[in-house]
Design a protein around this nucleic acid. Structure first.
Lengths: 268, 268
DNA sequence: CCCTGTGAAGATCTTCACAGCA
DNA sequence: TGCTGTGAAGATCTTCACAGGG
């Protein structure tokens, strides 16, 4: 009730489908590589392969941007790089602040892919007083107390949260209150933000879990169907509506123990 | 042609939709938090809020796993934690190797969310000889030469690539040849892998670009439609089929310069 | 002919809304 | 009566397949 909206930039922005927007950076990357090799034009087939998608999808995606290709020839690399950059809003400079300078925050600060796309790390912020002043990636870390001032003075609208899960929501609230309207969240928590603020999350743990799911399927492909029936020592009661034994049950294999998602040294 | 398949685990595995699989980790995280607070049961509404989705979607997702709830009551937290963990394959231990111990690789090695989900960092591998033996997150870094042996000896099936883009495909090929069948790629490159190998990618730069796209829209909401017509100094020829001026064109705003996607100190 | 641009079909995913069990 | 489980409708996304310009 009091937590407001969450995630997703809602529907599509103008007429470009979200799925297409999510792929534009992929095309841009492939095109930039071609541009550097001075390749003048590419066919949808070639570019699609370079970007890791199929050509029909790519052509459909580009059709939302306009008719930037030439039938019988392909697309002009430089021109397309410009058009996509413009569409993504990369023809302008985006100051960004990174909050939480632990292992991950430092890695992000050092990440070269930022500057190359128009993103400029305007400031690094951390709650640890002893970090203040210390340079990371050539930028001096500033204390959380300065957060509001930093954002206002630099006109920052995009913030990156790389703090432990426990501090994420609080940092998020301050960022939003200070004027931030886009957040990239690396902390393993669901952030509550008011309407109008976009949040995108990156959770390493989730990606690995998805891989594990498929990996498990591969292994079990020949082992019949270990559906129900196998595991003879753990499976808890299939029907335990009221008060299920809170003790054991999930603490079997010696994992999933006391850690949840908030501890972690650095959320990734 | 010679690059083989890429990305995506193909269709769905058994009957669980990919979209649902991708959300199971979210539910698991929320459930784990409830479990730690000793909450016995939750309604789809409460759990949905905690996970950041709507209840209808959550119930539909759970319906693919089976009927684990109790009408009129809700879901037993412990039981659901177990069922989802089992479904995701987290009731077993997954040894993982991280290749490329730069800023990012180190951050990943230190990430606590791994162990808490059944993932065990079996080894850290780096191509820099001077790194060999140095402990990161308590684990001594090993040289790339040992890659095959490490994977074989530890029965590793999941690998994380955190190398610069230029080394990614080569590392990927070695991992696959050594037996790895699931890869989490942080390098900004499209990896080519044979059928049967899953690749999931995480690209920070892409997430920021998507945020920039929406951010741009917000700002322009009141500024009419700066479609075509504005920007009077840059927009390249709308129709330049053959040989477009390879010189300028995209090197306007002083960004997008000589960097592409391969340089970066550490791919994130 | 080659390759783009796109209507239409097909596949997925999401949301609705309510039957039905506890 | 409360809340799950789910058929069906609706919204998106993907893929097909071909019209049509160069």
């Amino acid at each position: 009730m009091a937590t407001g909206r969450t995630h997703r930039p809602a529907t599509r922005s103008r007429g470009i489908p979200e799925a297409t927007v999510a792929r534009l950076p992929l095309y841009l990357r492939a095109l930039t590589a071609l541009s550097e090799r001075s390749v003048p034009t590419v066919s949808s087939e070639e570019l699609a392969t370079a970007a890791g998608v199929n050509s029909a999808k790519l052509r459909k995606d580009f059709s939302y941007l306009g008719s930037y290709g030439t039938r019988g020839v392909g697309y002009d690399v430089e021109y397309l790089v410009y058009q996509i950059s413009r569409e993504l809003g990369l023809t302008q400079d985006w100051p960004v602040v990174i909050v939480g300078i632990g292992n991950l925050g430092a890695a992000l600060a050092n990440y070269g892919g930022f500057a190359s796309r128009g993103f400029r790390v305007a400031a690094l912020i951390d709650a640890d007083p002893t970090m203040a002043g210390k340079p990371v990636a050539g930028i001096p870390v500033q204390h959380t107390d300065e957060l509001e001032k930093i954002i206002t003075d630099n006109g920052v609208s995009i913030g990156v949260i790389a703090t432990p899960a426990g501090a994420a929501q609080q940092v998020c609230d301050r960022l939003v209150a200070a004027g931030i309207t886009s957040i990239l969240n690396f902390a393993p928590t669901v952030l509550s933000v008011p309407d109008g603020v976009d949040v995108r999350k990156v959770d390493l743990s989730i990606e690995l879990q998805i891989l594990a799911f498929h990996e498990q399927r591969k292994a079990g492909e020949d082992v019949a169907v270990p559906e129900e029936g196998a595991a003879a020592a753990v499976p808890p009661p299939p029907v335990a509506p009221h008060r299920a034994p809170p003790g054991a049950t999930a603490a079997d294999s010696g994992r999933q123990g006391p850690d949840g998602d908030v501890p972690a040294v650095m959320p990734a």
